[in-house]
């Protein structure tokens, strides 16, 4: 299988690639649209600012490619948020592949933001390799709207979609590459699907 990790010149490319390598799949980290188009599966990672990320995507002419991919596409953390229509972070348009917006988490007493740490999941469909009660690692200040695409969620003052799935698209708000055994199971299930 040819697995490609989208290189936008930022984000946690190294740790995401290493997580797949631990599972025995060596991904190609590339920013070349034709290499991505030819891959069997594509991962869109991303740590950082949505505005910066979308500017990189547009500057590299990658938005049409990402919108038209037919093969499985996995967005991780910011990479998942970019799949939605819009984000409050710098108030920018995203790829618009999934309905809904990405909104800022509001801090409250005993609930600091970023949402940082291992939160338990409620899982609606265990075919994603996760089960209710699994703890996975989150580190984010923005979260997408809960909707019909949500297949696993955490609770952080409001429902936080942890995994969304629709057609060829999968998004993980948590970091599977840093989520121990549940993270491995999730990536394995996505590779095998």
């Amino acid at each position: 299988m040819r697995l490609a990790v989208v290189d936008l010149g930022f984000g946690n490319l190294g740790s995401v690639a290493m997580a797949f390598e631990r599972l025995g799949v060596v991904p190609e980290v590339t920013g070349e649209p034709e290499r991505l188009a030819g891959a069997d599966k594509v991962v869109l990672p991303g740590v950082g600012h949505a505005g910066y990320a979308m500017r990189q995507i547009k500057a590299r002419g990658m938005a049409p490619l990402l919108r038209e991919l037919k093969q499985p596409l996995l967005g991780i953390c910011l990479g998942m948020q970019l799949l939605f229509e819009r984000t409050e972070e710098e108030d920018v348009d995203c790829l618009g592949l999934l309905p809904g917006a990405v909104r800022r988490l509001e801090a409250a007493a005993g609930r600091p933001v970023p949402h940082m740490g291992w939160s338990p999941l409620e899982v609606a469909d265990e075919s994603i390799g996760l089960a209710s009660g699994d703890h996975v690692y989150f580190a984010h200040s923005f979260a997408c709207d809960d909707g019909t695409a949500t297949v696993a969620r955490a609770d952080y003052g409001r429902p936080v979609p942890a995994v969304v799935r629709s057609g060829n698209l999968t998004g993980a708000q948590f970091h599977p590459e840093r989520s121990s055994a549940p993270g491995r199971r999730f990536l394995q299930a996505w590779l095998a699907a």
């Binding site: 930022f10 740590v47 950082g48 600012h49 910066y52 910011l78 970023p114 580190a139 984010h140 200040s141």
Partner: peptide, 8 residues
């Protein structure tokens, strides 16, 4: 924070 996000 601007370049990598506050979570980093």
């Amino acid at each position: 924070a601007r370049d990598f996000g506050s979570q980093c």
